[in-house]
Design a protein around this nucleic acid. Structure first.
Lengths: 237, 237, 237, 237
DNA sequence: TATGAATGAGCGTTCATTCAT
DNA sequence: CATGAATGAACGCTCATTCAT
């Protein structure tokens, strides 16, 4: 319990554990390999961590601790009075900061997103996904309330879709070796969700390559067409 | 003349393995537990499967074999000449059939989607996700070529977003105990992606760079309407 | 117990067992491999043999049964009245027939001599070696009694030496792929033991290559020189 | 600072392994039995040896390492200029030292000579036997070149005979419980090989082809003298 | 009789954790 | 505190043998 004097030991061990967990999974990674990679003794490992899994949870904690800051940063409330532009700007800005963080911490997040997905650790990512989705849902509600978003949106389902999309984005990012143009990725995401896929009445003007668009051009709103009853009903069938 | 093979043995063992793998993960599930759950001998297990992992892969195969049918079903080609409505109808129909299948096979798919996410089996889900995303990409291209979808779409990123959303949807579905209104879920998904979130009454302001939003501008607030307690808890059975 | 009707089955199984035992040893050879090689069922195996080891013992039996004939063929007794020439001729003739047999049955004898050497089957080869050695000893006694052999021979030790030499010869023979000139081998053996290594007073006459002699030429006896006390004492120190 | 390695552990385990291997063979000996006999944990076994077979090989190595010294000790060369007496004295001396060593290390050599004869370890004893035989061959050549040995000796066959005889001797020795008079054994061996069996009073008849003996010729019988009951039983303890 | 599916005891090996030094 | 040798429970897999058909 007493804080060990060698503060670098814990960090060394966590760094080694990160690599081993990532390469072999928590289950197959051996304490032996971790400690030998860290240049520490097995005794030191158990001096700093209750068990192998405790070390993994410590890694998870640090991963989520950082991520959580971005998500809970600003919560929409009735007192908040942003316009559409501010909403989109905030969205993009928040995303950018969050995914910049993801990029910076991709080693640990790759671990958490893959290993943490299965087995008895699933709850960790689940919990985070739920938090993220609830945050999305709150912002969607905010947008709907303000009239920025379609009134008939099913918040629960839409937040699931958006959450899933961002989740996938994070999983891809975390595996890349070269940093992509995050701003483009995220603005495309935003465009996809806000504008949707549908071409508006006025087609895009120039001969843009659809596979390599330079970004959104002005569009005009189109009246929603497909109206289906009971759009806001409960999710259960 | 020989004792006829017990045709239910393999199925029994797979069913038991499914449960054990799901509950403990492939790594921690024991052959002992599987066989005792199946009411078979350990020898019987190795009579039907090369190894514990082979049994898992057999489960995966059966899961993906069924899923693959839906994805490769219709591939858009230049000879195809569907209108927007046909496109959307086909989209919805395909999704419905696919997710109906997911629902029917949710036990095995829950296993594959969770356990198959990590460790050395990740390639299985990865490969499937890639196939799915490529299929999405082809349909997006088709839509863009026909002028149904925005020309400036970044197919790669958008297909990632859509693929991620559907992935999440499958993961949620697979955990439910009571069947949800799949048609609603899927039409909401389609609406989200095709129409986007934006209320059409209000056009997006022109000339903004989505990659560099300038920040909040004043818009009128809308009274919060839809308040749902524990939105996401409702998703679980 | 009832003699199985398919007489070829037993032979097929034994032949397959011989190969498998030889290739992998009795311990590591599997009944599965034996039966599959024999094109028979596992049931058939246990119909013909009590156990895997019983099959090995059956092989050993057949191997030794044939060999035993040569060894026990003629036992020297006081009624026997052979001269030196007859003795040597009989020796050589017997050896030739025995090792011809060894050559013909080298597959099974290779198995018995190698696998049968170790573990719990050692007693088989041991027993045979003892029998062979006792036979050698009897002939040595006969020769000593007749005055053909040195009176001070320690029969026990000499029979050990001769038995070991023949044992080695059999082990070598059994591994060869091309049949060697057995007659030469055996006459060399006989020459080695009867004449010994020592050059006699008269050196060999012609320019024979000592490494490739064409066979023994006439030699003259040399009086034994090294006399050591207690040559006939008991073997124990 | 760490717990100092128990230096006796490896030796204890090897000693226990030696016994278990000897009693049951490498295949059937269980690590469990070895460790329990050694009063160590199973983990300790794998701390010192890669595998059960590695432990056996370690035993073999130690056995052969010691033996090798005797065999390679003096190699005959053209610069060597020994007389017959020196040759025989060196032979006897070398044998005596080697078999003294065999006696001292009989437990491990018994194991290696029996278990090491069969299965996949045969190459160990084979290799040693080959080395020994080549050493014998070199000395034979030396003797022939000096004119001490018969010029017509077939070195290859004779070295096989001598090697086999010594091999058998070692195998017998290794099984005894009470130390025999090694000097006697070995001088008998030497006498057998150098002098041969033949009584020198009677010359061998001339001109007989040893490869095709013509059969018995009349010689005078000699009354049987030395009758020993159970000659070979005396060899065992 | 013949078959080969089924059985289950048994073994080698691993590795998280402990603890003597 | 630090070390790393020691521990031993646990597990995947094998295969000789049995026996239902």
């Amino acid at each position: 319990m007493a804080r060990p004097p060698d503060k670098t030991a814990r960090a060394d061990l966590l760094a080694a554990a990160l690599i081993e967990f990532d390469e072999h999974g928590v289950e197959r990674a051996t304490v032996e390999a971790i400690t030998s990679r860290a240049g520490r003794s097995k005794g030191a490992f158990y001096l700093h961590f209750e068990s192998k899994e405790a070390a993994f949870l410590a890694l998870c904690e640090s991963a989520f601790a950082g991520l959580g800051e971005f998500i809970g940063a600003v919560t929409p409330s009735s007192s908040l009075d942003w316009g559409l532009e501010a909403l989109r700007a905030h969205w993009l800005e928040t995303d950018l900061r969050a995914f910049e963080y993801v990029w910076q911490h991709r080693p640990i997040l790759r671990l958490v997103l893959s290993v943490g997905m299965c087995g008895r650790f699933a709850y960790l990512v689940d919990a985070f996904a739920t938090v993220a989705r609830e945050s999305i849902a709150r912002w969607l509600e905010y947008g709907v309330e303000r009239g920025f978003y379609r009134a008939e949106l099913d918040i629960a389902i839409t937040s699931m879709a958006i959450g899933g999309a961002y989740d996938r984005l994070a999983r891809e990012l975390v595996r890349l070796e070269k940093k992509p143009d995050l701003a483009r990725w995220l603005s495309q995401f935003q465009a996809t969700f806000v504008e949707g896929l549908a071409a508006r009445e006025r087609a895009t003007k120039r001969g843009q390559s659809p596979t390599k668009p330079r970004g959104p051009a002005g569009e005009e709103p189109v009246a929603a067409k497909t109206r289906r009853a009971s759009r806001h009903a409960a999710l259960r069938g």
